[in-house]
Structures are given as C-alpha cells and as structure tokens.
C-alpha cells in the first residue's frame, strides 16, 4: 500500500495525539473508578489506603444482592426469549417473502431508534391500561416486577438480536441451504445441520448484546417495575441520586466486571465468526 497520500508532519502528529487522547478519554475514568473502589475513605474521590470493605458491604446488603439477582434473572430470561423471537424474525426476513414483510421490517427498527424515555412512557401507559386485562385473560398472576420488566426488555431486545443475526444470515450464501435440500435434507434438517451452525456466532453476538442492554437499562425498568422490585442499575441509580457513597464505587466496579466478561465473550464469538 502506498503511503504517499497519508498525512505527514504536524498532521500526522496530530492524528497520533488524537488517537492517544481517545483511548485516555475512554479508559482513564474507568481505571480511576476501579482504583477508588478499593479506597478506604468515606469520600468517593479520595485515596485513603487499600480496603475491600465496600465490596463486603455490597455483598452483605440484602437489597443490593436482591437487585443483582433480579437483574441477572431478568437478563437471562429476556435474552432467551428475545434470541428465539429475534432469530426467527431474522430468518423470516432474510429467507422468505410474505405479506406485510416491509411493515414488519420497518417495525423492527422502531425499538432501535425510539429514545429510552419515550419507550419507558409507552411501556408505563401500556401496562397501566393492559396489565390487568392480560392478567385477567391469561390468569398468570402477573405482577409488576419481573414480568413487566422482562416483557419490556424483550420488546427492545428482539430488534437488536434480529439485526445482528440478520447481518450474519445476509453474509451466508443461500446456496448452502439449497445444497442441503438437494442432498435430501428436509427444511428443518437443513436449518438444524447447515443454517444454524453457520449463524451460531451471530446468535451468540445477539444474545450478548441483548444481555448487555438488559443489564444496562435504567429508565424503562424504573418506569415499569412494581413496588419493592428493582434491578441493580435502578438500585444504583437511586443510590447515586440520594448521595454518592464509596459503596456505589464497589457496586459499579462489579457491574463493570460483568460488562467486561460479556465483552470478552463477544470478542470470542467474533473470532469464531471470522474462522467460521
């Protein structure tokens, strides 16, 4: 590759400096947060010696633990459902033509572009109007809390999953499925033995994205959660608004670690994608 068109001199230096700046900007706050979470000081931003007290406080607090377990439950449940529905949606859009396909396609973009706050309002009013009706109809004994939050998270996650899986499907030749059917596979077997193994990385990527978004959400959850029910982000958000304490540092770092784990997993999934 020719480098004759690349910037030289001050422009090149500025590009390098900007590169370093961006990474500093991204990581310095995170690193500082981690450091202060081990600081033995009542003050969140001052160093007072090393301690693990805040972490033990966090794990001793039944509220925090309850919120964490709620978050995890909701993340897992909503991810499973949205992965199933999102993958089916992706398949239908990439491999079939049917009536109302264009409307469906457009509808799938809605959750992605609608601002959190609007969606929160939509969900709040929807459950206000319909939750009792749904409850009466299906007799599920639904209460605001786990179900309302999960349903809301599924509502936005279907779209994100389907976008990721669709990208993977679009990159996969339909030839492969035709070859499978030519080789005596039924439609289901063609999916099971050819399509599915091919799109697993996409499904995994979609699942991780869904889980991340579910664990990230504050506004929508806050709007639809019932009394006494809260997720970790909403719990933390509430604490921050009451006043910043070092305990929040510890909780935040814990959430950070979970995020990082998901990132690592997603990178692994991408690797598989490249080799696949």
């Amino acid at each position: 590759m020719s480098t004759s068109v690349e910037p030289r001199g001050w422009a090149k230096a500025a590009l390098h400096a900007n590169g370093w700046f961006v990474y500093m900007f991204f990581y310095a706050p995170i690193v500082l947060l981690v450091i202060y979470s081990f600081s033995n000081s009542r003050n969140v931003g001052t160093w007072g010696g090393f301690t693990l007290d805040w972490y033990s406080d966090f794990f001793d607090s039944s509220n925090a633990r309850g919120a964490l377990s709620n978050s995890v439950k909701i993340a897992i449940f909503s991810t499973i459902i949205s992965v199933a529905l999102g993958t089916m949606a992706a398949l239908s859009l990439e491999r079939f033509t049917f009536r109302g396909k264009k409307v469906f396609d457009a509808l799938l973009y809605l959750p992605i572009i609608i601002p959190d706050v609007t969606m929160a309002v939509m969900m709040l009013l929807f459950f206000g109007e319909f939750f009792d009706v749904l409850d009466a109809l299906f007799g599920l004994g639904l209460r605001k809390g786990f179900w309302s939050i999960s349903i809301s998270h599924i509502a936005f996650n279907i779209s994100f999953v389907s976008v990721v899986v669709r990208a993977r499907l679009a990159g996969m030749d339909t030839d492969l499925e035709e070859a499978a059917i030519d080789l005596y596979a039924s439609r289901w077997k063609a999916f099971r033995y050819v399509t599915f193994p091919q799109i697993v990385p996409g499904i995994a990527g979609g699942a991780l994205l869904a889980m991340t978004l579910s664990l990230d959400d504050v506004v929508i959850t806050q709007f639809v959660s019932g009394p006494g029910w809260t997720t970790l982000p909403v719990y933390v958000f509430g604490l921050i608004r009451k006043g910043v304490t070092p305990l929040i540092n510890a909780v935040s770092v814990t959430m950070l670690v979970v995020s990082m784990l998901l990132v690592v997993l997603s990178i692994v999934a991408q690797r598989v994608r490249r080799n696949g």
């Binding site: 706050p29 995170i30 500082l32 947060l33 202060y36 969140v44 931003g45 991340t212 664990l215 990230d216 504050v218 982000p233 933390v236 958000f237 921050i240 910043v244 929040i248 540092n249 935040s252 770092v253 959430m255 950070l256 979970v258 995020s259 990082m260 990132v263």
Partner: peptide, 12 residues
C-alpha cells in the same frame, strides 16, 4: 460497558 457505570465514573 455499562452506561450508568461509565457516567458514574465521571461523577467521581
């Protein structure tokens, strides 16, 4: 990375 956490870092 968790959005709330990243904002909180700036608060600190």
């Amino acid at each position: 990375t968790n959005f709330l956490v990243r904002n909180f870092a700036w608060r600190v």
